[in-house]
Simulated scan of single mutants.
Amino acid sequence: MFAPLQNDTFIRACLRQSTDHTPVWLMRQAGRYLPEYVATRAKAGSFMGLATNTDYATEVTLQPLARYKLDAAILFSDILTVPDAMGLGLSFAQGEGPRFASPVRDEAAVAALRVPDLDKLRYVFDAVTSIRRALNGRVPLIGFSGSPWTLACYMVEGKGSDDYRLVKSMLYSRPDLMHRMLQVNADAVAAYLNAQIEAGAQAVMIFDSWGGVLADGAFQAFSMAYTQQVLRQLKTEHNGQRIPRLVFTKGGGLWLEEMAGLDCEVLGLDWTVNLARARAQVGGAVDPLGMAPGKALQGNIDPNVLFAPPAQIVAEVDKVVQSFGKPHQGAGVGPTHIFNLGHGISQYTPPEHVSALVEAVHAASRRIRA
């Protein structure tokens, strides 16, 4: 049993219902830009030591909420926990990104892939439950996973990539192997997110971080189709509560109208997308009966705005709020906006600049409603 939700602004906006202000949370809001996070990570000894320890994961998830009036918390974890549980051997070297000890690069390695035993990911689900209890109903908790395509990129490359040469070579030369890997990933991601929901996540987000590197046509076949497979398997309700599903494809603005067909409630946008145009394309109509289809939109200020002086941050926030326009108000459903960055927050961001952003979002969004 969990405490009742006190601030449901984020959930309501996900469901295209009216709110008194635009909710705001930040991708990577618990991270290295916060000195308290750095101190906790030092105690944990490593990133994985932090992520696999229930108490530490709970502590760092709540740290940004102690500083800022954010409208949602997001589980502290990593998008690569699923392939790690498949046996690929995830590690994080200091100052480097993630690496896999056993990349998937040939037919035998692909054939050996299986949906992992979810008990290997018990530390994630224990953290979800612990965080939900610690929040005590303050704001909703978002669970997440990488998309099947994004996971496949890391699984084949073995680490981050500048040119995606290895994964794209497999895609074009052996599409059968790529489809096999993506099918396993889709089933694994769906099971993983459903387990997070059962553990206490009140919304779930799929990060298609590398979807935008694909060619037109390849994106639909190798990324969007498998994201749709995940979405169709996800719980949409748990313990009598709706569970919103969010999809963020970095670089995906080109395919926004096609993504409107995804079986989700929210589409995330990077900073290259015009919010007013996106609202017109996929935001849907106002319907007092709550039946009209459409997507809530999330995003999309450039994270580098946070390096500007606070006065400029306030001005840029106002531009984003004005670009979306006045959200739906009243009964039923209509176009709604969740304020976020167009990608994750930089580790070099001054913490006080985040305060300026959060306060500006709440102030500007209340003004536009008035």
Score class of each variant (00 low, 15 high):
271 W>R: 07
313 I>V: 15
163 D>H: 15
53 N>V: 10
86 M>R: 02
104 V>E: 10
290 G>V: 09
62 L>G: 01
175 P>L: 12
293 P>M: 04
148 P>L: 06
245 R>H: 07
369 R>H: 02
152 A>W: 00
322 Q>H: 09
100 F>N: 00
323 S>R: 13
23 P>C: 10
301 I>Q: 02
207 F>M: 02
82 V>Y: 04
140 P>W: 14
243 I>V: 15
150 T>K: 01
301 I>R: 00
8 D>E: 14
353 H>S: 08
82 V>H: 06
259 M>R: 13
325 G>M: 13
4 P>M: 08
76 F>A: 05
119 D>L: 12
279 R>W: 02
327 P>S: 11
106 D>C: 06
20 D>Q: 13
121 L>N: 00
258 E>P: 07
357 L>T: 01
41 R>A: 07
175 P>D: 10
310 P>K: 09
319 K>Q: 10
304 N>K: 11
6 Q>N: 03
251 G>R: 05
31 G>S: 03
262 L>R: 07
95 G>M: 06
34 L>C: 04
304 N>L: 13
285 A>C: 10
72 A>T: 06
168 K>M: 08
305 V>W: 01
26 L>C: 13
42 A>Q: 14
180 R>T: 09
281 Q>K: 15
168 K>A: 02
299 G>L: 11
58 T>M: 11
18 S>T: 00
297 L>M: 11
291 M>N: 11
108 A>M: 08
339 F>L: 10
335 P>H: 04
193 L>P: 02
223 S>M: 10
112 A>T: 13
318 D>L: 07
289 L>F: 12
336 T>N: 08
110 V>Y: 07
43 K>C: 10
361 V>Q: 01
301 I>T: 07
247 V>I: 13
225 A>H: 14
188 A>W: 00
196 Q>A: 00
72 A>C: 13
187 D>Q: 11
180 R>D: 15
252 G>A: 04
367 R>P: 13
44 A>D: 07
91 S>N: 10
220 Q>P: 14
213 V>T: 14
339 F>M: 12
31 G>C: 05
135 L>H: 01
155 M>L: 12
214 L>F: 15
234 L>I: 11
118 L>G: 07
157 E>I: 05
254 L>K: 15
149 W>Y: 03
176 D>I: 08
195 A>N: 01
328 H>D: 01
295 K>N: 12
227 T>L: 08
203 A>G: 04
333 V>F: 09
151 L>A: 08
19 T>E: 05
339 F>K: 04
287 D>W: 07
114 R>S: 14
41 R>Y: 03
142 I>E: 06
200 G>M: 02
316 E>A: 12
58 T>S: 13
274 N>W: 05
260 A>E: 05
165 R>P: 00
120 K>G: 14
344 G>E: 06
161 S>E: 13
173 S>P: 00
318 D>A: 15
295 K>H: 08
356 A>M: 06
124 V>Y: 08
9 T>W: 01
282 V>Y: 04
138 R>F: 03
1 M>S: 12
11 I>Y: 03
313 I>M: 11
284 G>L: 01
200 G>H: 01
61 T>P: 06
316 E>W: 03
158 G>T: 03
246 L>V: 15
166 L>S: 08
59 E>T: 14
273 V>S: 11
8 D>M: 03
344 G>H: 06
81 T>H: 10
308 A>Y: 06
188 A>P: 02
107 E>I: 06
